[in-house]
Computed example of a mutant assay.
Amino acid sequence: MKVSIIGATGYTGAELLRILNMHPAVEISYLTSESHTGAAINTIYPHLSGVYDRCLVSMQAMEDIGRESDVVFIGLPHGHAMEVGKKLAGTVKIIDLGADYRFYNTATYETWYKVPHTHKESGAVYGLTELYREKVKAASIVGNPGCYTTASILALAPLVQKQLVDVTTLVVDAKSGVSGAGRGLSLGSHFTEVFESVKAYNIGGHRHTPEIEQALSELAGTEVVISFTPHLIPMARGILSTCYAKLKPGVTPEQVDQAFADLYGREYFIRLLGRGGYPATKNTRGSNFCDLGWHVDARTGRVIVVAAIDNLVKGAAGQAVQNMNVMFDLDEKTGLNQVPVYP
Rank of each mutant, 00 (worst) to 15 (best):
Y104M: 14
V115H: 07
V57F: 05
G277N: 04
V296P: 11
A138F: 00
E121Y: 07
K199R: 15
V26G: 03
F103W: 06
I5Y: 06
K162Y: 15
G301S: 05
N21E: 10
T43I: 01
S186L: 14
P77Q: 05
A40S: 15
A14I: 11
A259E: 05
L164W: 09
T242C: 07
R299E: 13
I41H: 02
P46E: 02
I44K: 03
I95T: 02
V136N: 00
S189W: 04
Q60V: 12
Q163T: 09
A8F: 08
K93W: 09
L330W: 10
A81N: 09
I233P: 11
V51S: 02
V125W: 06
M327G: 00
A89V: 12
G205F: 09
V225I: 13
A261C: 07
A99S: 14
P230A: 13
I203H: 08
Y148D: 03
G204N: 00
Q255N: 09
A8P: 10
V225C: 11
F191N: 09
L273M: 14
L56I: 12
S49C: 07
G180H: 14
V198F: 11
G221S: 06
Q255D: 11
H206L: 08
F191L: 12
A138Q: 03
R67C: 06
L20N: 01
T108H: 08
S35P: 06
L159A: 01
